[in-house]
Nucleic acid binder design. Structure first.
Lengths: 302, 302
DNA sequence: ACTGTTTACGGAGACCGTAAGTATC
DNA sequence: GATACTTACGGTCTCCGTAAACAGT
């Protein structure tokens, strides 16, 4: 028997938060349970217990959707779990051998810089095994946090010299590599396509093809109604949507060749640039430090 | 029987982190256990389990002191637990009645501003119950995170217009209220005490009375050797240490009267000011919003 | 009726307390 | 030898799986 003590209050545990987030993301107890390796009954019990602990309903059922409180908790839980991942990873990084370098790259994140830097690195250490994977920015953040990869080249749209803010500030180390101007990709024949430059205001009535997984727009004002959303991260597909007239797209000036049916027009907006940065743990191994240096050198040279 | 699944890896739970942090802070399994309401044996087992989970030793014993890895984990754990507190508090804040306002104040945090703002607030709502408590900045952060108080007036030394950074950025809402210049408190008769102003370089050989709980210096360069440390948060005691010649102290220009045996000399350093800001949850109740407004008005007026 | 969540129940295991063991000062 | 942490062991409770009940569509 347990004597009366203080600790009856706090019972929110990481496992519960993981389950809750999985349900929120999946929109279903059943598939969340599959992802987590539980039975759906177990997940139901976990959510019930969590709701009891916080004393309020977190999810609406049928359809499964977070309540106001649940949405708020989900946001916090995301950050908490990410930090837990980072904590574990920083410990593992202490005895990282460093014979294998794994890097995530976003599609538009200055691929030339990475290639050149890797050539330098492999020149110094010919036995080095390197794995490069293409992902989107949010997956990359999570991969770095979990130490699934050692570093990630991520990109996004932001103000000049300001970080992309893909994770909580201070959680990961980020190094600016390249900033390039933006262009708007129009379908050929678009009335604005023949201009030498466009302002954002001109696009107020033009629809965008928004691609949240592909290129995060950060604080960029996404004017224009009826957006078509593209969930993948393949540039050719995105551009084909543009070419088909579903809307225009905001892209970096470099890193991609203009295909048929697309015209590119510079965006005249001094406060928006496309930025590529390197994400690593804040306690990088010597190998990652060398990669960072090589990338910085390459970026400065290019 | 449980089929093979993925989730055997992750077993770090919040309870473990709490126990670990308690031990690190207490420097002892026994007192940590008392604080937590466990037996010391239980804490020992929790730490052992945590060390097994992360696969490395986190604490040295006799004396009890974190290892390199343990120190790193402790830092992360602090942030994690703080965010967990915030998550819980933001949920509780959803149904906050708002008939009782609880505020933490640091000793040097512009007390006049709070008094005036409270007068305004109680003028509008005469039935409002108000509780004010004096604390140090770190306690205040934790209290806001746990919703033990609704708001906290904290202070510290920082560069002009830069936040105090007492917690992770974005974790809490902070509002700048007052920034005042700094003065150095010397013991009467100190060679520098008769000057009209001093630079930090002049103090390179002068010892400080450092008071980490009292006035966090942030990035202020604390030159000078042989510092005497004061752990409390009472201004009179601190100044008596200064008057007794144990060192000088860096203080805001206002908020305190000069006692016998002390001379104050302005610090000539444009990049350092004393700043008072208000800390609240990012989802404040209407009552807290009104307090914020009142404080902002008062601060602007004064 | 079927899909998907909740509830009931039972067993395995986690977790903590008691108490004995061990190491360090 | 005393203090403080570790280990052994047993009881209780948590937690998950099975299965049945229940609720929306």
């Amino acid at each position: 028997m347990r004597d009366a003590n203080i600790r009856d209050t706090d019972a929110v545990e990481i496992r519960d938060l993981r389950a809750f987030l999985a349900v929120v993301r999946a929109g279903s107890f059943t598939v969340a349970a599959q992802e987590l390796g539980y039975t759906q009954s177990a997940v139901s019990q976990q959510i019930a217990s969590l709701e009891k602990e916080v004393g309020r309903r977190l999810l609406d059922r049928r359809p499964v959707r977070p309540t106001i409180a649940g949405a708020r908790l989900a946001e916090q839980a995301t950050r908490i779990l990410l930090r837990v991942d980072v904590a574990r990873s920083e410990l593992s990084a202490l005895d990282d051998g460093g014979s294998h370098l794994r890097v995530d790259v976003c599609a538009l994140a200055a691929p030339g810089v990475l290639s050149a830097a890797l050539r330098d690195l492999r020149g110094e250490r010919p036995t080095l095994k390197v794995t490069v994977r293409s992902t989107d920015a949010l997956t990359a953040v999570s991969a770095v946090a979990r130490a699934t990869v050692d570093a990630a080249l991520v990109d996004g749209i932001t103000a000049p010299d300001s970080p992309l803010a893909l994770a909580d500030p201070g959680l990961l180390a980020s190094t600016a590599l390249v900033e390039v101007p933006l262009v708007v990709a129009f379908p050929a024949g678009h009335p604005l396509g023949s201009r030498s430059g466009v302002d954002l205001e001109m696009l107020d009535d033009a629809p965008w093809v928004v691609a949240p997984n592909f290129l995060r727009t950060g604080a960029a004002p996404m004017a224009g109604a009826r957006p078509v959303s593209y969930e993948g991260n393949d540039l050719a597909t995105l551009l084909s949507l543009v070419a088909a007239g579903h809307g225009s797209a905001l892209l970096p000036d470099s890193s991609w060749a203009t295909p048929e049916g697309i015209v590119r027009v510079p965006l005249r907006h001094p406060q928006l640039v496309h930025r590529t940065e390197l994400l690593t743990l804040r306690t990088p191994s010597q190998l990652v430090t060398r990669l960072t240096d090589a990338l910085r050198r390459t970026a400065a040279a290019g």
